[in-house]
């Protein structure tokens, strides 16, 4: 625990001050700028891995370029004839790279990840909880956003009806309309999320609360949309 903690701190305070194990160059982080050798994988957060500040607005094209460039240098394919030690580092580094890229390139995953760095866990727990509730056949305690309460109630009745019997034209029409409105509202939430990002990126620490709120509402709408689409086939 203590060892891990120290390494993490070093990485955060002096991100580019690593000495290459092979040639001693001081600019080495993922691989040595002088001799090109892969460096040992240290615990790091995904933003630091790409040398990025903890901001949510990011240039996705640039991120992709960085991902490809690093892949070419770190991938195990490049170390297949290297020492076992370098093979292992390459494997660990590349898995960090892939995990980081997968998380950061996706808006929602990126936001959730930032929240988790701030000590707010949401995605996994709520998802496992949902699945567990489904599996055990119990109602998951879900906080329905108040503005959806009435609508959600009606929609669930409609879905229940559709599941029991046939989906006739009338029901299909209603569900199609619901699908469209849910899709539109999800898009609206996305814009809302981007606004909250800007607050965070400008240094407003309290933006995390707003993020959690947007993500919760989004997840609720997504579940409804999934149910509608399931019934529509």
């Amino acid at each position: 625990m203590s060892e891990t903690g120290t390494q993490l701190k070093v990485l955060q305070t002096r991100p580019n001050q690593h000495k290459c194990w092979s040639c001693g160059d001081m600019r080495a982080e993922h691989f040595c700028g002088e001799c090109g050798h892969v460096q040992p994988a240290l615990p790091t957060d995904f933003f630091s891995f790409f040398g990025l500040p903890r901001r949510l607005e990011l240039d996705e094209a640039k991120l992709e370029d960085a991902f490809y460039t690093l892949s070419r240098k770190l991938h195990p394919d490049m170390y297949s004839q290297a020492s076992q030690r370098e093979q292992l580092w390459s494997l660990e580094k590349t898995s960090q790279l892939n995990d980081a890229y997968r998380t950061l390139r996706d808006e929602i995953a990126r936001t959730e990840y930032l929240l988790s760095l701030e000590g707010i866990q949401m995605e996994e727990q709520s998802k496992v909880a949902t699945e567990q509730a489904r599996a055990l056949g119990v109602e998951k305690k879900q906080t329905v956003p108040p503005e959806f309460l009435e609508e959600a109630f009606e929609l669930n009745m409609l879905l229940e009806e559709a599941r029991m019997g046939e989906v006739d034209d009338d029901v299909r029409e209603q569900l199609d309309a619901t699908e469209n409105s849910l899709t539109a509202r999800l898009k609206g939430l996305r814009d809302e999320l981007h606004k909250v990002w800007q607050r965070w990126d400008a240094g407003d620490v309290s933006a995390t609360g707003a993020m959690v709120d947007v993500l919760n509402r989004r997840s609720y709408l997504r579940n409804l949309l999934r149910d509608v689409q399931e019934v529509l086939g």
């Binding site: 960090q96 892939n98 995990d99 890229y101 997968r102 496992v128 567990q132 599996a135 055990l136």
Partner: peptide, 30 residues
């Protein structure tokens, strides 16, 4: 750059699968 075809999970309470690496994640993945 290839992917893992199937999600990796662990058995959680109630015999439920908790996914920890999703399918189509670029490998190596952790």
């Amino acid at each position: 750059l290839d992917v893992t075809p199937l999600s990796l999970g662990i058995e959680a309470l109630g015999g439920v699968t908790a996914k920890i690496i999703h399918r189509n994640s670029t490998i190596p993945a952790s």
